Computed example of a mutant assay.
Amino acid sequence: MTLTKKIINSGDDVVDEMVEGLLLAHSGIVTSVPGSPRSIIARHGPRPGKVGMVIGGGSGHEPTFVGFVGKGLADAAAIGNVFASPPPDPILACAVAVNQGAGVLFCYGNYAGDVMNFDMAAEMAEMDGIEVRTVVTTDDVASAPRDQRHKRRGVAGNFFVFKAAGAACDLMLPLDEVVRVANLANDRTYTVGVGLSACSLPQTRRANFHLGDEEMEVGLGIHGEPGIIRQPLQTADAIVDDMLDRIFAEMNPQRGDRVAVLVNSLGSTTLMELYVMNRRVRQRLDALGVEVHATWVGPYCTSLEMAGASVTLMHLDDELTRLIDLPCDCAMFRAG
């Protein structure tokens, strides 16, 4: 099998060297916890009386997770190896560092390893007197039936859930309200993705799955998890139509509703292709009479160099509209 090409020194060192380079590039926004280099903290996030928000997960999805740490969004991120959950210790270090007496929210994608390690860290934090509440993201429409939404994966919709919950924290809302907002944001966020070709782990430089030259897979996960259907490559409009039909079947948009849109690259899919997709997203929403309040296009939740894209809609109400509009200043994302 042909090896892929990567600009790295060693697959074993790539995450730590990435973190080192990120901290050097964004030293005014983020730093690491002393003694825990994979616990990344916002310099201007935590403050007395504010709920602390800790996100995290495996590396390889940048800017998710570490790129969303900063004023107005997450206070900290725990960083795991590529496609692997961070262990409990750096998660706990994040919780301790951002604890300002109002409790801590853990928010992350619904994957078994993350659930296990964040739960362990929550138990350890509570033994230290820190109240921790957890919201897992479950926006991936393709990963489980509607009546089993609690089993779904968290994918690019993390972006919207983190943004709303981080804004609630920044507004100094109490922990119960922050948890309510995070759950509301998650419940109203829907994503469908499509994969066109595999990525490769830095340690192996070998494709982690195979698709034929003219094949695509709908519902493919961000770690290469199987989708729901493998079929011949379609046109951009047909791909988007299929994605939106699956989302609309659950969201049930009505004329006059508002949404926020994310058209996300899984890694190597170009902005040219994403904007072609966004054109079709807008055509479909305009035809329904649904207002697009805000749009983001680009790599927001990636899978190393995987070719493919996802479309996420957040079904807005007045509260969520206000929260996603609030300013934030992170290493890889700014708003307001």
Rank of each mutant, 00 (worst) to 15 (best):
A249V: 09
L73W: 07
E250F: 07
D325M: 00
V292L: 07
M332R: 14
K5E: 13
H150E: 15
V104A: 12
A198E: 05
N117C: 10
E291C: 08
A165Y: 09
Q254N: 15
A236Y: 13
H293T: 09
D139F: 11
I222E: 02
P299I: 00
A167K: 03
P145Y: 10
D140I: 04
I222C: 02
A185F: 12
G60I: 03
V96Q: 15
L175K: 10
R279H: 15
I130R: 07
P86Q: 04
I239G: 13
P48N: 05
P86N: 01
L326M: 15
M172R: 11
F248W: 14
M53R: 11
G70D: 10
M314G: 03
G103Q: 13
I229T: 14
F209M: 08
E17T: 14
G298H: 07
S143R: 04
G11A: 09
V297F: 08
G103C: 08
G308C: 03
C94L: 06
R246Q: 15
I324Y: 13
L233F: 09
A121Q: 01
A112T: 14
N186T: 09
G157C: 06
Y111M: 12
A121T: 01
R255E: 15
Y300G: 08
S59Q: 02
M272T: 07
G72K: 03
G212F: 03
G267Q: 01
D286A: 09
G21C: 10
S268M: 00
I55K: 01
R43G: 06
A78T: 03
A236I: 15
M306N: 08
T302K: 09
H223S: 02
L285H: 00
R279N: 11
Y275H: 13
A142R: 04
G70V: 02
G113K: 03
E131T: 15
G109L: 03
R133K: 15
E291P: 00
I29L: 15
F106V: 14
V98D: 00
L316K: 05
R47S: 14
M120C: 08
S85Q: 00
D75S: 11
L22D: 00
K71M: 07
V19T: 02
L262V: 06
C199Q: 09
N110W: 07
L262M: 12
L175Y: 13
L3P: 03
F106Q: 06
P86W: 05
N252W: 06
V240H: 13
V292C: 11
H315I: 04
T270P: 00
V14M: 11
G227L: 12
G221Y: 13
G35I: 08
A122S: 14
T134L: 00
K50F: 06
Q148I: 01
E177P: 03
D213T: 13
A260D: 05
L262E: 01
F333W: 01
E20T: 15
V141S: 04
V135R: 01
E131N: 12
N117L: 07
L173F: 14
L288F: 07
R230Q: 10
R279I: 05
S27P: 04
V261F: 04
E177V: 08
T302W: 01
V155R: 09
T137E: 05
M272Q: 06
F162R: 10
C94E: 02
V261C: 10
G45Y: 04
A236G: 09
P34W: 10
R205S: 12
Q234D: 12
R180S: 13
M243E: 11
I41W: 02
V98T: 01
T270A: 02
S36E: 11
M277H: 08
P86D: 04
T189Q: 04
F162Q: 11
E319P: 03
Y108T: 11
